[in-house]
Nucleic acid binder design. Structure first.
Length: 261
DNA sequence: CTCCATGTTTAGAA
DNA sequence: CTTCTAAACATGGA
């Protein structure tokens, strides 16, 4: 489940599991996920090296190895990490298997194989190559306001574009706009200073709260859209009116036409 | 079998 | 040049 909150949780997961362990062997089961990297380069940079640090930017997760280069992971729509003892049966859908020197194994699982795996000199190299905007959780209010004021188009499309701001996807953009009371088709140009300030505050609130709730839709506050999205139809937790569904850029968008304008 | 899915890329239209 | 849309990617689940 990979938007910013999910990837942040994967980072924290790595921090208290595989971090500081040494990689013994590596197996790649889905070569199609490699980008800017050969399988040989991947093996050479992982095997025999200790994991020293982790970093997240938007939906990208970076893992530093002791030689200073970084393993780059992007989770697509279905990617996730699992760390378990080598005695445990291997989970399904493993695309990358990283064996560690403490008899534990880190699995990168992906059902749809839409993610990416690579080696890079630094997170910045990837951020530049992918043309990623500032991280949605790390950006300052001033920079956010400047970005919005310099932007064009509709809110939903703008927030989904990782070159403007990195981290929000379909689900959390909908959640943000719901909390901010703004219609997904509203143009950036039409926003008041008040709207922009509220967007920033709500964005921080939605992302941080999602992380606190482990980004689990079932555990999210019932006043949010997220825990209800698995039903085809549901009512707005705030006004009780029917929540609308439209397609924007081919993605299902949920919003309340009474609360969001 | 059909439809849908938390991401990104790309071609074409506006 | 920018924005927007639909399709494609690969695959599983309802």
């Amino acid at each position: 489940m990979p938007e910013l909150p999910d990837v942040e949780l994967e980072k924290r997961y790595l921090d208290h599991t595989a971090r500081a362990k040494r990689v013994t062997r590596t197996h790649l089961h889905a070569p199609g996920l490699l980008y800017h990297t050969s399988a040989q380069t991947l093996y050479q940079n992982l095997s025999g090296h200790r994991i020293t640090d982790t970093h997240r930017h938007g939906k990208f997760l970076f893992t530093e190895l002791e030689h200073g280069r970084w393993l780059v992971l992007h989770f697509g729509m279905t990617g996730t990490l699992v760390y378990q003892h080598a005695d445990q049966p291997a989970p399904d859908y493993a695309v990358l298997v990283v064996e560690l020197d403490n008899d534990y194994v880190l699995f990168y699982l992906s059902r749809r194989k839409l993610g990416r795996i690579g080696i890079a000199a630094s997170p910045d190299e990837v951020i530049e190559a992918e043309d990623l905007g500032p991280d949605a959780l790390a950006i300052s209010k001033a920079h956010f306001e400047a970005a919005i004021q310099g932007g064009r188009g509709q809110l939903k499309n703008w927030f989904m574009d990782q070159s403007h701001l990195a981290g929000l996807g379909n689900i959390y953009t909908d959640e943000l706009l719901y909390h901010a009371g703004l219609h997904p088709r509203r143009t950036l140009k039409s926003l008041s200073a008040d709207d922009i300030g509220r967007l920033y505050t709500k964005m921080q609130h939605v992302l941080k709260t999602a992380i606190e709730h482990k980004a689990d839709p079932k555990d999210m506050p019932r006043t949010w859209l997220l825990p209800h999205r698995d039903q085809k139809e549901f009512n707005c937790p705030r006004c009780q009116g029917a929540v609308d569904t439209i397609k924007l850029s081919g993605r299902t968008t949920y919003f309340c036409s009474r609360c969001q304008r």
